[in-house]
């Protein structure tokens, strides 16, 4: 860690309580609206070209009619040791000083290496220039750039929202309060299954949840050090 992350006030992380998640996919819709994600038509979707920054995986347990379903929203895990980063030849994906794993669209040439090296398969590619059915193109978020065809993209933890809150806090010369930053998925979750906050602040909600006995990380054994923490379903 000789030249690792310089100490910054924030280390953003997310906690997802799988006990609370109902699999309603409101987070998926909210993410699309917030981040100007292009829509794929049914034919494209059937070819495996759906473009979601967050998806809800379903795990079934048992035989019908006695089936238990586990819903698990999967988004970019914002790994501290992200496998996608060192392999990008043009530095399009890299670690920003707040520990976020960010994607610089303008640098991306589309080698796909990052996506192949992501064990969570959360990166999505713009196979064509993005398009929206009428009148969806009228509700674009002005804070988020629209990505051209040929570049890779993925969840940013709604970096535009983080920046806005940080700027407001800076202008008011006050620290960012816990829960002040709310990415679109967190904001829209009706079951309040998702919590976002600063893992550097020991008193924040995410930090407290992170110490919970149910806390796990997805494929922790790969050593990627994800910043998304899942609270396992209680039996």
């Amino acid at each position: 860690m000789a030249t690792g992350n310089p100490v910054k006030p924030h280390r953003w992380g997310m906690v997802i309580d799988l006990d609370r998640c109902t699999g309603c996919e409101a987070c998926v819709v909210a993410c699309h609206a917030e981040n100007n994600i292009g829509m794929s038509d049914p034919e494209e979707a059937a070819r495996g070209r759906v473009n979601h920054w967050i998806r809800v995986d379903r795990y079934y347990e048992g035989e019908f009619p006695d089936v238990k379903v586990k819903y698990q929203p999967v988004l970019c895990q914002h790994c501290d040791e992200a496998p996608c980063e060192p392999v990008c030849p043009v530095n399009a994906t890299y670690h920003n000083p707040e520990g976020l794993n960010v994607q610089v669209y303008n640098r991306c040439v589309g080698t796909f290496y990052c996506a192949n090296n992501c064990p969570y398969t959360v990166r999505s590619f713009n196979w064509f220039d993005p398009k929206w059915p009428e009148p969806m193109q009228l509700q674009h978020n002005p804070d988020v750039s629209i990505r051209p065809g040929g570049v890779m993209e993925k969840c940013t933890f709604c970096i535009q929202k983080i920046k806005r809150v940080e700027e407001q806090a800076h202008a008011g010369s006050r620290p960012v309060a816990d829960g002040e930053v709310q990415p679109a998925c967190v904001q829209s979750c009706p079951a309040e299954a998702m919590v976002f906050g600063d893992l550097n602040d020991p008193d924040s909600k995410v930090s407290r949840f992170a110490g919970d006995g149910r806390a796990t990380k997805l494929m922790e054994e790969l050593g990627t050090k994800p910043k998304v923490i899942y609270l396992e379903k209680a039996r």
């Binding site: 860690m1 000789a2 030249t3 690792g4 992350n5 310089p6 501290d80 040791e81 992200a82 980063e85 060192p86 530095n91 890299y94 670690h95 920003n96 000083p97």
Partner: peptide, 16 residues
Amino acid sequence: NYEIVTGGMPIFSFWA
């Protein structure tokens, strides 16, 4: 010259 945040990896490594 363009020092990226490497997340624990050295900036320059002969191995890499």
